[in-house]
Simulated scan of single mutants.
Amino acid sequence: MLAGNSAAGSTVTVTASNLRSAEGVVRACMTTNPARFPKCRGDAAAYSVVVPAGKTVTFNFTNVKPGRYAIALLHDENDNGKADRALMMMPTEGYGFSRDAKVRMGPPKFDAAAFEVGTANQSQTIEMRYML
């Protein structure tokens, strides 16, 4: 359940709250690459974690190198590995972003969710949101 590169670094603890069910999993990724946010696909330096869902879940990104990061969460209720969508491309599953960055006509930009990681451990609390 812990993810990260092998070099020593800090720990970023994430608490995701307000999940609507304990069905499925929470998929999380953390990246320094604005072009790969929010999916992190194709970013070999991204950190990722998958944990069982619950009303609230807490997990760690470990061995995090200092830098400017953004986190994206998906409550993958049916555990199919993707964000399901309804008509008009509205997400049917929950999502959340570091700094509780808001969604407006699509996911937030990297800068809205970005935070600095140094050598000290830190935590982020992210409220899950659901459109449907």
Rank of each mutant, 00 (worst) to 15 (best):
E116V: 10
C40T: 03
F37N: 00
D76S: 03
G96W: 11
G4H: 07
K82R: 12
N5G: 15
G118F: 08
F97N: 05
V49A: 12
S10C: 01
S17R: 15
G118P: 11
E23H: 14
L74K: 07
A112R: 12
S48Y: 09
A22I: 04
G81L: 10
F115K: 12
G24Q: 07
A7H: 08
V51Y: 08
H75R: 06
A22K: 11
Q122N: 05
A16E: 06
G118M: 05
T13I: 00
P52R: 12
S48C: 00
A86H: 06
M88I: 07
R85K: 15
T15I: 08
G9W: 04
M30E: 01
R104F: 14
A28Q: 04
A35Q: 15
F110N: 07
Q122T: 14
R104D: 14
A70L: 09
L2N: 15
V57G: 07
V117T: 02
G42D: 08
K65H: 06
M88R: 12
F37P: 05
A86N: 14
A45S: 15
T31Q: 05
V12F: 09
G81N: 11
A113Y: 06
N78T: 12
A83E: 13
K109L: 09
P91H: 09
Y69S: 05
G4Y: 09
G54Q: 13
S98Q: 06
R27Y: 10
S21H: 10
A72K: 03
